[in-house]
C-alpha cells in the first residue's frame, strides 16, 4: 500500500484510540454532573443524614473524609519527604538505597484492599486503636507514602547539582545545603506530590472498609479514636447496600466526592506546570 495512505489510516486509528481513553472521562463527568447537580444544596452538604440515609445530608461523610485525609498527610508527608531526601541526598547508589527503591515500587503496587487488611491487622487489632479515624489515617498514610516519596524524589532530583556544590564550597554543612539550597527549590514539586497524595487518600475506599468506616453514624466524630463515615464508603453503601435511595442523592454524593478529588488533582497539575514554566535554571 502507498505509505502515505497507510500513514493516514494509522493516524486515524491512533486518534480513535486516544478518544476512547479520554472521552469516557468527559462522559462520566457529564453524567454525574447532569444527574447529581439537583441534589446539591446547603442542606445536603451541611446537615446530618436522616431516616437511614434516605434523607438529610452527608456532612459526617464529608468531614470524616477531611479528617482522614488530614491525618494521612500529617503522617505520610514528613516521613515521605525525609525518605526522599535520604534517597536523593544521602545514599549513594548502594545496596540500602536499592532496597529502599524496590520497597517503594512494591508499596505503590500493593492493592488497596491489602492495605486495608494490614491496617486491620496492625492498627485496629495489634495496637488496639480499634476501628477509628486514627487507624484509617495511618493506613491511608502508608498507602500514599509511595506517591509522596516518588514525587518528592523527582522534585529533589530536578534541583541542579551545582546548587549543592556551590553551597558546600561556601562552607555550608550538608544539612544546611539541603535546607537552604535544595529544599526551597524543590518545594513546589513536593507540594504537588502532597496534593496528589491527598486526592488519592480522599478517594480510596478499600483501605478504610475495615479500619474506620461506619455504615451509618449520624453524628460527628469526637476524637481520633472514633469511627467515622467517609465519602467514598458512603457512596458504596448507598449505591449497593441500601435499597430505595433516590437516584439524585447517589449521583449527588458521587458529584461531591468527584469534585473534591478532581479539584485536588487539578490543583496539583496547575502547580506543577507553573513550577516548570517558572524554573530559571
Amino acid at each position: 500500500m502507498d505509505p502515505r495512505r497507510s500513514q493516514k489510516i494509522a493516524f486515524a486509528v491512533l486518534l480513535l484510540a486516544t478518544l476512547l481513553v479520554v472521552l469516557p472521562v468527559v462522559v462520566i463527568l457529564a453524567i454525574i454532573v447532569a444527574k447529581g447537580a439537583s441534589a446539591i444544596s446547603w442542606d445536603f452538604l451541611f446537615s446530618m443524614p436522616r431516616e437511614g440515609m434516605s434523607a438529610g445530608g452527608i456532612l459526617p461523610a464529608i468531614l470524616g473524609t477531611l479528617y482522614l485525609v488530614l491525618g494521612a498527610v500529617i503522617f505520610a508527608v514528613p516521613l515521605g519527604v525525609m525518605a526522599a531526601i535520604y534517597l536523593v541526598e544521602y545514599s549513594s547508589d548502594n545496596r540500602m538505597s536499592r532496597l529502599v527503591k524496590l520497597a517503594i515500587v512494591n508499596l505503590a503496587g500493593v492493592p488497596s484492599v491489602v492495605y486495608g487488611l494490614f491496617g486491620l491487622g496492625i492498627f485496629v487489632t495489634f495496637f488496639g486503636f480499634g476501628a477509628s479515624i486514627l487507624s484509617g489515617s495511618l493506613t491511608l498514610g502508608i498507602m500514599i507514602l509511595p506517591v509522596i516519596i516518588t514525587s518528592s524524589r523527582e522534585a529533589l532530583e530536578s534541583v541542579p547539582k551545582h546548587f549543592r556544590t556551590v553551597s558546600l564550597s561556601l562552607g555550608a554543612s550538608r544539612w544546611q545545603t539541603i535546607r537552604h539550597s535544595v529544599l526551597p527549590h524543590a518545594l513546589p514539586g513536593i507540594l504537588t506530590g502532597m496534593i496528589l497524595g491527598l486526592g488519592r487518600a480522599a478517594g480510596e475506599t478499600a483501605p478504610i472498609l475495615f479500619t474506620v468506616a461506619a455504615f451509618y453514624l449520624p453524628r460527628l466524630p469526637q476524637s481520633v479514636f472514633d469511627q467515622s463515615m467517609a465519602l467514598p464508603y458512603h457512596l458504596y453503601v448507598i449505591s449497593t447496600q441500601v435499597p430505595g435511595i433516590a437516584e439524585n442523592v447517589r449521583y449527588g454524593t458521587a458529584l461531591v466526592l468527584l469534585t473534591l478529588v478532581l479539584l485536588l488533582n487539578l490543583a496539583a497539575i496547575v502547580l506543577r506546570s507553573r513550577f516548570r514554566r517558572k524554573k530559571k535554571w
Partner: peptide, 8 residues
C-alpha cells in the same frame, strides 16, 4: 568555578 554559578 569555570562557569558562573550564582544561586537563584
Amino acid at each position: 568555578f569555570a562557569l558562573p554559578l550564582p544561586l537563584p
